[in-house]
């Protein structure tokens, strides 16, 4: 019995697997369209939290550079430029936060796990064209 099972050629990709794959891809694509086609939060704020506590809030419209002090002496250099925020350099070993794309939409965030730093975009008029000067 065991031998017969072993000799049987097993299918590895069937109809149900294809339906599952397509379903997950469609859900993912819908999510991407909803989340990433939103306009930038023009009058939004950049909220910086370290270990769950908000340490500073900066306007997204003003170009600035700030060094964030994370836990265990870690540092992240936050740069706000042209209505987007990004981490220019960081002391963490993996550098995931540095490679992260520049954020500008409400709710988007850059996370540095080793330093427990979370940079989040908050609120603002969502792309109201009249607000552009």
């Amino acid at each position: 019995m065991i031998q017969r099972q072993a000799l049987e050629k097993k299918k590895s990709f069937g109809r149900r697997d294809l339906i599952l794959l397509l379903a997950v891809l469609v859900i993912g694509l819908i999510g991407i369209v909803i989340l990433y086609t939103r306009p930038a939060a023009l009058n939004g704020e950049v909220e910086v939290a370290v270990d769950g506590e908000v340490v500073m809030t900066l306007p997204l419209s003003e170009d600035t550079e700030v060094t964030i002090e994370g836990v265990d002496g870690g540092e992240n250099l936050l740069v706000i430029q042209d209505g987007t925020a990004k981490i220019e350099s960081a002391s963490c070993p993996d550098g995931i936060c540095v490679r992260h794309y520049a954020i500008s939409r409400d709710g988007e965030s850059i996370i540095c796990l080793p330093n427990r730093v979370v940079v989040t975009i908050r609120g603002g008029e969502k792309g109201d064209v009249d607000a552009v000067v």
Binding site: K10, K11, F13, G14, R16, D17, L20, L21
Partner: peptide, 10 residues
């Protein structure tokens, strides 16, 4: 219910 590919996707 699923083949190995479906199991791996999940």
């Amino acid at each position: 219910r699923l083949h190995i590919a479906g199991v791996s996707i999940c």
